[in-house]
């Protein structure tokens, strides 16, 4: 299983050599800001499966849970690239679905943070919805 991808301007390239652990659509307010007003779409991959080439800019914040979150984006075109929690979940990288080449077999499996979605949002009725964070699928690594 290999996925490839790139940012909008082509300065950053991705190669991912594993299947994702999960794919989620997130309507939290911070994701809406990052994603132009709609939800973010994240595919969670094992960190070691991901190779990125090109310049990457970093930003970050502390989540309500206290977890430090890093966000990477292309400094040339601003394309959101990935998010990760280097201390809490160092083994995972959440790749923004938009950067992966299409067609691919990835699709959101759940919708999270519907409680922060705007009134006009529509959700796929075929997948589970959670008003905030989803139930933990597995114990944390630490």
């Amino acid at each position: 299983m290999t996925y490839t991808g790139q940012c909008a301007c082509g300065a950053v390239h991705f190669t991912i050599t594993a299947a994702p652990i999960a794919v989620r659509q997130c309507w939290c307010r911070r994701c809406q800001k990052m994603a132009g007003g709609g939800p973010a779409h994240n595919a969670m991959f094992p960190t070691e499966a991901l190779t990125i080439t090109g310049p990457v800019a970093h930003t970050g914040y502390t989540a309500d849970s206290g977890t430090a979150i890093h966000w990477d984006f292309c400094p040339t075109c601003g394309t959101p690239l990935l998010a990760y929690a280097p201390v809490a979940r160092p083994h995972l990288r959440a790749v923004r679905l938009g950067v992966l080449d299409q067609p691919n077999d990835l699709a959101p499996q759940m919708v999270i943070w519907t409680g922060e979605a705007p009134a006009w949002a529509v959700f796929d009725p075929a997948i589970p919805q959670y008003p905030a964070a989803p139930p933990a699928p597995a114990p944390k690594a630490n």
Partner: peptide, 13 residues
């Protein structure tokens, strides 16, 4: 292109 710069979903403007 909007999907790329908006994390995989659509842009809203």
């Amino acid at each position: 292109n909007c999907q790329r710069i908006c994390g995989g979903g659509p842009a809203h403007v």
